[in-house]
Amino acid sequence: MVLQLCLTSAIDDDSYELCTSTLCNLSGNPPVLFNNFTAMFKPNPSFDIEQTNSKNQLIEQNRLKLCKGVPLDCLEPDNKQRDHRMLRKYDDDELKGFDLRILQRMLHGSIDVDEMDVDERDASDSAWILSISDIPPAGANRKVSSQAITESTITTTGGSSASITSFLSELGYILDYRLLVIGVKFNMKHNVYLELSKIWQIDNAGITRQLTKGGFMVKAFVNVAKSTDIKSINNGTNALLNLQKELSGYIDLTIPDRKSMDSRLENLNDI
């Protein structure tokens, strides 16, 4: 179980250029382009699911997050233009020049037999990270948000219906919604990562809507591998607070509302 400590903020599109060069100088590292495709799955609503397990413990229904990177050449064919400046062209709902069918193929597999052979050769193509995140615990005197994330690596999928979606439907989960994130990240000091990202939601009809229109979401975080490692948690917290202090007056990093980071199904009673 990973504990993710984080602080968030936002900047507008016009500040992006100056902000990346500021952060670049501050961290001493160039920005790294990243992107990921997230598919959130929820328990199949047609099932009558108990809220307790066989030991009579309360287990709330939680969404499953399935995540993997999208090959960059799908977004930007020209190798030379693949740097942080590339993000400037994505200021709209539409993802110009991006073929959404790639995402469809990732989730549901290809029906075409010839293409399946191609997939087999590149094993990392069918790899996914499956994770479940808890709601961050409540508490008045928290300095940073801390969220426990349980994750598992799926290296390949197999079987006669080999897509990841068909396995998850056997598991009792169906696709809820899909997100695409493109952003840049900076390696700051003391294992702190700072991400500036644009996020799109993709609906079932394949229409994309940018959630971060007019700006970028800013997220500074530290991952602590063990939630019992108090020393690392304190170090991570202090590192984040130092960054918050360093950037204050420019980017004001704050603790996000814990309720907005809750991925349980809504029909359950809130704590």
């Binding site: 179980m1 990973v2 993710q4 790294v32 990243f34 992107n35 990921n36 995540c67 993997k68 990177g69 999208v70 990392s124 790899a127 996914w128 990270i129 994330i149 349980t150 994750e151 598992s152 690596t153 994130v181 990240k185 990562y193 991400e195 991952n223 591998a225």
Partner: peptide, 14 residues
């Protein structure tokens, strides 16, 4: 690619 793209935090559980 999953680590670099921020999908994995490198601590997988069974």
């Amino acid at each position: 690619s999953l680590i670099l793209n921020g999908c994995s935090s490198r601590s997988s559980e069974p």
